[in-house]
Amino acid sequence: MKTSLPQTNTFLGSLLIGGLLLLIALSFFWTPYDPLGLDLASRLKPPSIEHWAGTDEFGRDVFSRAMTGARISALISSFTVIIAVIFGTTLGLLAGYLRGWTDRALMTLTDALLSFPGVLLALGLMVVLGASQFGLVVALGLAYMPAVIRVVRSAVLSIREKEFIEASLVIGNSEFYTMLRHVLPNAIAPIAVLATSMFGWALLSESALSFLGLGVSPPTPTWGNMLASSRPYMETAIWLGIVPGICITATLLGVNLLGDSLRDYLDPRTNGS
C-alpha cells in the first residue's frame, strides 16, 4: 500500500516533465502557427479547432506561443537553479566545514544579500549585467545563491560533528577528500528539496523581471511575459492567463514530484534492499 504512492508520484512527475520536454523538442521544428505572426483579423479568439488555446490581443496563436515560451522559461529556470546550486553548495560546504573566519565572512555576505528581496537583488544585478537572457540567468542565480548557502551550511554543520567524519580523517584521508566523499553526499537531500522549489521561484521571478522589461523582451514569448500581458484581458479573454498558468503549475508539480523521488532514490535508507 505504502510503496505504491511514491511510485505513482514518480510516474506522474515523469509524465509531466516528459510531456514538457517533448513539447520543447517539437517547438524547434514545428508549432501550429508562427508564435510571432500577427493576425489582427482574429484577435482575442477563444479556444477553437483552429486555435487550440485561442489567440491573444494581436491575434497570435496562444498554443504556439506557450510551446516556444516553454523553451525559454524552462531553460532560464534550469540554468538559474544550476548556478545557484553549484555556487551555493560550494560556498555553504566551505563555510560549514571550515568554520572560523571563512564561515563568518561568508555568512556576513549571505546575510547582506538576504536582506534584499530576491527579485530586487536580481533587478540590481541586471542593471549591471545588461538585460539579456544571460544576464537574467546570472542575476537570478546569484540572487538565490544565499538561500542555498544557508541550507547547505546548516546541514554540513551537523554532519561534520558525526563520528564518521573523524573516522575518515583517522584513516588518513585529506580534509578536501572527506568533504567531497563523506560530507557532501549526506547533504544532498536538503539540496535536492531546495533546488526543486527554487525552480518554481525562478519561473515566477523570470516573469516578474520580464514584466518589468528587464527579462526577455516582449515579442519573444515566455510563460512569464505571456502571463503578465494577459492581465488587462482577465475578464474578456481568460484563456490568455489560464494557459501559461497551467503550464507553470504543471511544470512545478512535475519538478517537485521528481525532486522528491530523486531524494528518496539517493537515500539508501528509504531504498528497499
Binding site: 558525526k162 563520528e163 564518521f164 573523524e166 573516522a167 575518515s168 583517522v170 584513516i171 563523506h182 553526499p185 549526506n186 537515500d267 539508501p268 535508507r269
Partner: peptide
Amino acid sequence: QLVFQDPYSSLDPR
C-alpha cells in the same frame, strides 16, 4: 586507528 563509541554515527550512512 580509532574505534568509536557510537556505532550509529561512526559509519557513513551513504
